[in-house]
Nucleic acid binder design. Structure first.
Lengths: 100, 100
DNA sequence: TGACTATATTTTGATATAATAATAACCTAA
DNA sequence: TTAGGTTATTATTATATCAAAATATAGTCA
């Protein structure tokens, strides 16, 4: 695969991370700060395995990172492009998320 | 479906448009100006039905629009978010596309 | 009208993704 | 070490997406 094709592959994989409403929700939540899986599950009212699966997709793409904190595992936004994308296109659409 | 969920659905569908390398290529080409299907097919070296299928996906999401010009059908970027996204995240990655 | 060019749609089979349930792994604290 | 809480993985099934081929549609021009 040529260098150019690799770039397009990587970019399309990046966007694929945002192409599922649940993953969008997760990313939006993490934009407010690191969160443990348990909190995410409660906030989003979803089953633990489902959250965990979507987190593993985001992790494999390098979109998020995680660290253990005691008995919890904390996820955070890792890819700097996420913040840019969030500010440019996502933030303005999700008025319900606005923090004063 | 709640209003919020609809917004997330729409956003994720938008990003899904960018989650395939061929569609990225098409979008990048259209960012340089409207193109007919034939030109796209030649530029990207792909079969006509394949181009046409991806174009129809982009059309259904409102990402691109098209108009007939004589015997050709011309596609163009329609969704204003595309330009923002292109300038923010795509342009800088695709050095091979640079126009002097 | 008929032939030709350009584009779209449909169908099929292969592959990827998704949701759910079940289970495993890992930490902490008693 | 055992129990309980937290997270990850696996397996299964359903669904969606993809590529390729075949076919259909629509416009143009002789």
């Amino acid at each position: 695969m040529s260098k150019d094709e690799e770039i397009l592959e990587e970019l399309s994989e990046f966007f694929k991370a945002f192409s599922h409403p649940v993953r969008l929700k997760i990313i939006i939540n993490l934009m407010e700060g690191p969160q443990c899986v348990k909190n995410l599950g409660e906030t989003l009212d979803m089953s633990q395995p489902s959250i965990s699966q979507h987190l593993s997709i985001l992790r494999n793409k390098g979109i998020v990172g995680c660290r253990r904190e005691g008995s919890l595992i904390c996820y955070y936004i890792k890819d700097p492009r996420v913040k840019k994308l969030y500010n440019l296109l996502i933030k303005e659409e999700i008025s319900w998320q606005e923090k004063s």
